[in-house]
């Protein structure tokens, strides 16, 4: 199966990329799907690179952690856009249908399992990104203003260090 994926990597990538970009509104997908400079089109650029990395990774030995790391850039973007959680990671499942045209029948169950594994990694990473966002939301203003006041001794409360310390314990 890995050989088949490797052999058909470009075809898989193009179809998977299109399916992922088409989760955006059509008017946007048309622009984001163009092969333009990666700095002029970060969603398109990062999405393509990430999917490419993931397709390479699955032809090698990998752990769930490796998968999460490889999926991170694209999930990180989708976690701050207006997708609901299901639609943020649904692009992974698109690979099942795409794979059906190239993967041999005998391997298809294994391929589905692989995609499932990828979906679990995507879900993990999505939650991690959302937690990052909530933590930033909770600590940002405190870090900015409160810390300056703390250093100046204008407020006396638990310091940010104390609070973050209690999180670790």
């Amino acid at each position: 199966m890995k050989k088949t994926i490797k052999k058909n990597r470009n075809q898989l990538l193009e179809s998977w990329f299109d399916a992922t970009i088409n989760t955006y509104p059509e008017e946007s997908a048309r622009i984001l799907g163009k092969k333009s400079n990666r700095f002029d089109n970060p969603i398109g650029g990062v999405t393509r690179e990430t999917l490419e990395d993931v397709l390479t990774l699955i032809t090698e030995d990998f752990s769930r952690e490796d998968l999460e790391k490889a999926l991170d850039p694209v999930i990180r973007i989708r976690a701050v856009q207006t997708f609901d959680p299901a639609n943020a990671v649904s692009f992974v499942f698109a690979l099942k249908e795409i794979g059906e045209s190239v993967i041999e029948k005998a391997d298809i169950i294994n391929f589905y399992r692989l995609v499932d594994e990828m979906a679990l990694a995507a879900f993990n990473r999505y939650m991690k990104c959302r937690e990052d966002i909530f933590l930033l939301k909770a600590t940002e203003s405190k870090r900015r203003i409160h810390r300056a006041f703390e250093r100046a001794g204008l407020v006396a409360e638990l310091s940010e260090g104390d609070l973050l310390g209690s999180k670790k314990s």
Partner: peptide
């Protein structure tokens, strides 16, 4: 703080270049 998703999404093109 309440619009942090908008801010992070809006900062993507800048962050993408910083990351590079």
């Amino acid at each position: 703080g309440e619009n942090i998703e908008l801010r992070m999404a809006g900062a993507l093109p800048r962050a993408n270049a910083v990351k590079y």
